[in-house]
Design a binder for these strands. Sequence first.
DNA 1: GCCGTTTTCGGCCCGACTGTTTTCAGTCG
Length: 573
Amino acid sequence: MPVANHDIAEIFSHYAALLEIDGANAFRVRAYQNAARLIDGYAASVADMVRDHEDLTELAGIGADLAGKIEEIVETGRLAPLEELERRMPSALVELTTLPGLGPKRVKALYDALEVRGLEDLERAARSGRIRGIRGFGQKTIDKLLQAIDARRDTHGRVLWLEAERAAEPLLKRLRGVGGVSAATVAGSFRRCKETVGDLDLLVACSRSAEVMERFVTYEEVEEVVARGTTRSTVRLRSGLQVDLRTVPAASYGAALLYFTGSKAHNIALRSLAAKRGWKLSEYGLFEGRKRLAGRTEPEVYRRLGLAYIEPELRENAGEVEAAQAGKLPTLVELKDLRGDLHCHTLATDGADTLECMAQAALERGYEYVAITDHTRHLRIANGLDSRALSRQMQAIDRLNGRLGKLTILKSAEVDILEDGSLDLPDGILRELDVVVGAIHDHFDLPPDRQTDRILRALDHRYFDVLAHPTGRLLGERDGYAIDIARVMRAAADRGCFLEVNSQSKRRDLADAYCRMARDARVKVAISTDAHSVTQLDSLRLGVAQARRGWLGRGDVINTRGLAGLRALLKRR
DNA sequence: GCCGTTTTCGGCCCGACTGTTTTCAGTCG
């Protein structure tokens, strides 16, 4: 198993954090951070590139030194300078910098003065009063640190995107009700549709900021007002979620939205671009001296910088700025492009609604088709169907089809991929299905080679169409099973199979970087909900967001095709 | 540590807020 891009990225990222605490040059630190992000999101395997003697310095931000360090990591799995640094600076210090209010400088000061190495050390030192003596630490700072440690115990930082949306909506509604507010929205990683959100960044365009701030800090869910200013405030909600609010005049709204949407790296890239022309870009606008060149809307700012408009989902400084300069941005898939859903369950197994209800709901959403993909017999816990039960469901589908206007219910199943890679139902019945979706539900801990071989054998099956939740990850709960994703992609491309982009909030599986990898490998995806109830059919937008983060366009997604076009792509013609 | 159509050295994004300050460093986004 070669060293994964993610592993290299983690090492660089960790090294950057330790260097920063050590007081290294900030731009040197940034160079490692940039490299980490580049490699983490890079489609091709960097380890393969090293093996093939490709010139890594061709990559933006990778020079001779970093190229050498990448080779070292690929070849040894380690980075000697990091290990050397770790002898002086305990690794656990990095975690301390993730506490709000504690940055690299203060962590270093605590370590130097009191040998504080981790959360427990910090708490002890704070409670004992020893921190008081250190320059720069007053009682208020210490109180906030203790609070932050408590909060850390309660939440584990990030929340799923869907939970963030639930927290944001009532708050936005409240702020929109204030007089003089012309716009209110959530920016930040939420707007970029990342899988999880660390905090909410609200942006309000208004003429009377004081009133907006007052409404904000008096919201009933606010547990604590962390900071309060005239244009910017921060609160912590009872749920533990931190919310930042920034107010701007309407003339700056676009520039502010751009700025607060980030990512930070994207902002830096844009500001550098502005600086090259002698301009200055801030949240107040794009300026030449005192003259405002743009700022009211985002498209205006991009246009003035000579860039095509960049969708929020792409703003990670992962090649989108260069693509926008060259006019080579992809046209991203949109929710309205989707013509149907290829993964959902009914009461027959572990769904909550009947076949009729699910079909009716699909019809109401204007779909041309919906695939009913109940589990198969191996998944006993979900009451998986055997051939006979599935046959009965197929007959029920036959009776329903034709009575539902333009909607066609596709006969399908989420077939278990068994430990040896064979499928859980005999060919006789698989042949009768319109589409075969396959998935792994057990033996998550096979060694990478065996797990990969297991999937490859399933893809080899003559009737296999779509690999559901391809890596099996559950955000915040477990990583995906260990597989060689590049091999899986190559195999899927060879065999005319497709990968699912699972829309469930907790799955978002494929990951964004893997969506992009699929595009490069010329593997098409199905954006599906895996809905276990009628309401979950609406999670399709999360799958779309995920695909957009992975640079996918309409053509990359099989269920943007009409029914005839879809059938033409599947193995049964 | 990276980078270069003014540069191979000297730059590298910009501003708000807090707390502990006698004028500003640290943190955050």
